[in-house]
Amino acid sequence: MNDPIMVEVKDLHFSRGNTDVFRGVDLQIPLGKITAIMGPSGTGKTTLLKLIGGQLVPDRGQILIDGQDVHQLPRRSLFTLRRRMGMLFQSGALFSDLDVFENVAFPLRVHTELPNAMIRDIVLMKLQAVGLRGARHLMPSELSGGMARRVALARAVALDPELVLYDEPFAGQDPISMGVLVQLVKKVNQALGLTAVMVSHDIKETLSIADYVYIIADGQVMAHGTPQTLNVNEDAHVKQFVHGEPDGPVPFHYPAPDFFDDILAPAGQFS
């Protein structure tokens, strides 16, 4: 990769309770591109986003955003850094006591002293970009899942951030909403020149827009490369994951005694 690096994760170790979530993870997120982080469920992908965002602190290792070590920053600087980041959660995470307009305006009100008229203009532009300008006075409870996510996207880019983190943006969507979201993510990324980090397990959608992919399993990076290289990767683990094969290194059958022995055994032997 020759692009400049926006986010660098070095030798990340993190454990929760008794389980090691990350055992030495190295990632390099290139500037201006969409990087996908994929892997089987439960590998802690959301945790990774929270670590990058500075909400969780790693046990070992560093996370550098634009050269700054996120976890060494004093509060003020972390606040300023957060202004340059946007995050889109799986459920949208819109504030349930504010309407759509106020939700998108929230980061603007927190981080800037802009007058109301300007805030209004910016919010309407963002809502227009995601196609929901007309929905500005609805409450989050009145929105469908797909619409909520679009509003959340508008909110995530309200401050024109340089880095956007997407947590499973396509999970559980119907085909139309999925299509809309995929297009929006690509469009917004290009329009704003964003660096996007996307965590997902929707192979087809993600590989269709990602510029670079990391596959994480067992707390470490299993493979990485462009979507094209991963598609033809011969490694058994990678192949199973990328092609969605039911059986492979991650077995189909839960460990059990031999099938014929089990069926033909006298009652009580294997029970």
Partner: peptide, 17 residues
């Protein structure tokens, strides 16, 4: 609790509040 479960609290922190 619902705000925590739908990650509103996390996103609030991420926005810096």
């Amino acid at each position: 609790g619902l705000m925590k479960a739908t990650e509103q609290l996390t996103s609030m922190e991420m926005i810096g509040v």
